[in-house]
Nucleic acid binder design. Structure first.
Length: 421
DNA sequence: ATTCCTTTGAAGTAT
DNA sequence: ATACTTCAAAGGAAT
């Protein structure tokens, strides 16, 4: 049986990479996993103050921008340094977005230019192992679903094809034979989830925020919450087609549909078409960082007075980078299993299925601002021009820059010319 | 009521 | 092959 972390032939895990961030200036010293540094707080609070103090004046706006830049520098530094510290095969994301700002020292005058495909289920779906899927489990705590006990006792299930074709003609990454090992089916098909042993028993999902106000032990709370807390989604439509509720399945678009599902089977006089349109959405499996956030968010909230998720997430991002390889490996492994389980449960599902379900103003903004084609940064055109009786060589630059810190994109044209007789 | 913000990673699309 | 985009969670803030 394939071993965890063997990596051999595991396409799914191929993208699980470790990050080693050990050389980021001030963060060189490793931040203990459970220690919320005062610097985190200070940074965050100062950033919040800076943001809130902004006024409409240009000077203040500049100050805000600078403050924002300072606050976000750590992340940018990480991004910039990422390639230097990636392990083999590490994917580098959005490098361009975080490259040095074009602001500094700009020497020129600038002329601004204005899972349930068709309801079909794989045969696997009726054979969901009892092992709690990671979706339903607080990923950190228990790790229970992924404990060695579960894996080591698993027998290779004949029900699970080594390679699942998820969509017609679409070859998804091969399911490796270790999947059954992760989610073993007890001999004799005992592994089927019964209505009483489904996702309800797991509380991956956050307790009410007030529950985090007290000193918090993730292991304790998560473990203790197994039977006491039920994810709200599970009350409604978070059901797998097998009848197995799964946190990844949520009503298509939030509360309204939730209400629809919550009304305990009351027949809703809806047009058939509308009903079809409201198929529950199968969420993406959580990646390593998301799993980490789920676990650590509560701690961070408990350790500071911050509530804003954006601020919390900044801290979590920094702490994530401060984790050791081993610590991160734990989450990468969890995430890998999440994906594997997700693939088993929703063989035909694709992340694309959820595309376009979020309306984003930023997307529109970006499209607007980039609608005037962003010329290749640094591109230069040089052409002779006729100016009266003289000729001029005009060098024309289009400089396109984008500042992620300021969420500002602009294209500038600049030129200089030399008269040639 | 809806979207934004903010993070990283996976997976999708576009070139 | 590479670059870029979208979404996953969270919840206060902004629209």
């Amino acid at each position: 049986m394939p071993q965890l972390g063997s990596g051999g032939g595991d396409d799914l895990g191929a993208t699980d990479e470790m990050l080693a961030f050990k050389d980021e200036g001030e963060q060189e010293e490793k931040i203990p996993e459970n220690a919320f540094t005062e610097r985190d707080l200070a940074d965050l609070k100062s950033s919040l103050v800076n943001e809130s103090e902004g006024s409409g004046s240009p000077a203040a706006a500049a100050a805000d921008a600078e403050a924002l830049r300072r606050v976000q520098d750590p992340q940018r530094v990480y991004q910039e340094k990422l390639p230097d510290h990636m392990d083999d095969g590490m994917k580098h994301q959005d490098p361009g977005m975080y490259k040095g700002s074009a602001y500094s020292g700009y020497p020129f005058l600038m002329l601004s230019d204005p899972y349930l495909p068709n309801g079909s289920m794989s045969p696997l779906s009726n054979k969901v192992p009892v092992v709690q899927p990671s979706h339903g489990v607080h990923p950190l705590t228990p790790l229970i679903p992924y404990s060695n006990d579960h894996f080591s006792h698993g027998s290779h299930s004949p029900h699970l094809p080594a390679d699942i074709n998820q969509k017609q003609g679409v070859h998804r990454p091969s399911q490796t034979s270790d999947i059954p090992g992760f989610y073993p089916l007890p001999p004799g098909g005992v592994g089927q989830i019964t209505p009483s042993m489904g996702w309800q028993s797991q509380s991956v999902y956050p307790l009410p925020s007030c529950g985090f106000r007290q000193p918090y032990s993730s292991a304790l709370s998560a473990g203790a919450s197994f039977s006491r807390f039920t994810h709200p989604l599970m009350l409604g439509s978070g059901m797998h087609t097998t009848g197995i509720p799964h946190p990844a399945i949520v009503p298509h678009s939030g509360k309204q549909e939730m209400e629809h599902y919550d009304r305990n089977m009351k027949p809703q006089p809806e047009p058939k078409r509308e009903k079809e349109a409201k198929k529950p959405t199968i969420k993406k499996p959580l990646n390593a960082f998301m799993l980490y956030m789920k676990e650590m968010r509560a701690k961070v909230i408990a350790e500071c007075t911050l509530k804003e998720s954006a601020a919390i997430n900044q801290i979590l991002g920094r702490r994530w980078h401060a984790l050791s390889r081993e610590e991160q490996a734990k989450y990468y492994e969890l995430a890998r299993k999440e994906r594997q389980l997700h693939m088993q449960l929703y063989p035909g599902w694709s992340a694309r299925d959820n595309y376009g379900k979020k309306k984003r103003r930023t997307r529109e903004k970006q499209q607007d601002s980039s609608s005037g084609k962003c010329v290749q940064p640094g591109s230069c055109s040089c052409f002779p021009a006729q100016m009266g009786e003289s000729k001029a060589v005009v060098v024309f630059y289009h400089v396109c820059f984008y500042s992620p810190e300021l969420n500002y994109r602009n294209t500038h044209s600049l030129f200089f010319s030399a008269m040639v007789n």
